[in-house]
């Protein structure tokens, strides 16, 4: 059983306060939608939880049972999908997937790569450079990476951004598939997206 705990979390940029006194604890199977208007700090909260930005105050803890996870363990267990998270344009889809899984400490076979590419509707594009992909296809490839990582913590920022109707359907299926075995956090403004989560955290009030 994995846990994610935010304790008295606060973030401000100079005089501008984004959020403060955020407290929550999530365990495997829980899901949280972070909602709020543009500029309310949804993406900043996600980046802070991921350890990519320092909080002004408070702490974030990743744990398995009662044991706190170190940075290396956290990297192996976390997946993040966002429109501003870029893959390598000059590498092919397969090369990108293989690279990121290897550097996160895993091992992946060609068969596994083909299976996830098929799941996100990119089965014929594995050997094409990502530079030739549309923004929606790039977003699908990020979901393929999340699937391969089989994460204990899944963070989604604007999860259906750039996706067509078919792509949105795939995302809903993937979230359903991963949700039971992971902690899911979604930052979004779209009602149909935050309904994927069981709890809500509203910023910018």
């Amino acid at each position: 059983m994995f846990r994610l705990t935010a304790k008295d979390l606060a973030k401000r940029f100079g005089a501008r306060k984004l959020f403060s006194a955020l407290n929550f604890e999530l365990t495997t199977g829980d899901s949280l939608a972070v909602i709020g208007p543009n500029g309310s700090g949804k993406s900043t909260l996600i980046l802070t939880l991921l350890g990519l930005q320092r909080p002004t105050k408070g702490s974030v803890t990743f744990a398995e049972g009662d044991t706190e996870l170190d940075d290396a363990a956290r990297r192996r267990l976390v997946s993040f999908v966002s429109p501003y998270l870029n893959l390598y344009d000059q590498l092919t889809a397969e090369e990108n997937l293989k690279f990121f899984i290897t550097v996160s400490g895993g091992h992946v076979t060609g068969k596994q790569i083909n299976a996830v590419l098929q799941q996100v509707g990119l089965e014929r594009r594995g050997v094409d450079p990502v530079a030739e992909f549309s923004s929606g296809m790039k977003q699908r490839l990020k979901y393929a990476l999340a699937l391969l990582s089989n994460p204990a913590y899944l963070f989604l920022d604007e999860p259906t951004s750039n996706l067509d109707r078919e792509g949105k359907k795939i995302v809903v299926q993937l979230v359903e598939q991963l949700r039971a075995d992971s902690i899911l956090i979604i930052a979004t403004n779209e009602e149909e997206e935050y309904q994927l989560a069981t709890a809500q955290c509203r910023l910018g009030q």
Binding site: L52, A72, V78, N86, L87, Y88, F100, V103, G105
Partner: peptide, 10 residues
């Protein structure tokens, strides 16, 4: 690409 690299790689 620094963001995913920071997130996933030691």
């Amino acid at each position: 690409t620094a963001l995913p690299l920071r997130l996933m790689a030691d």
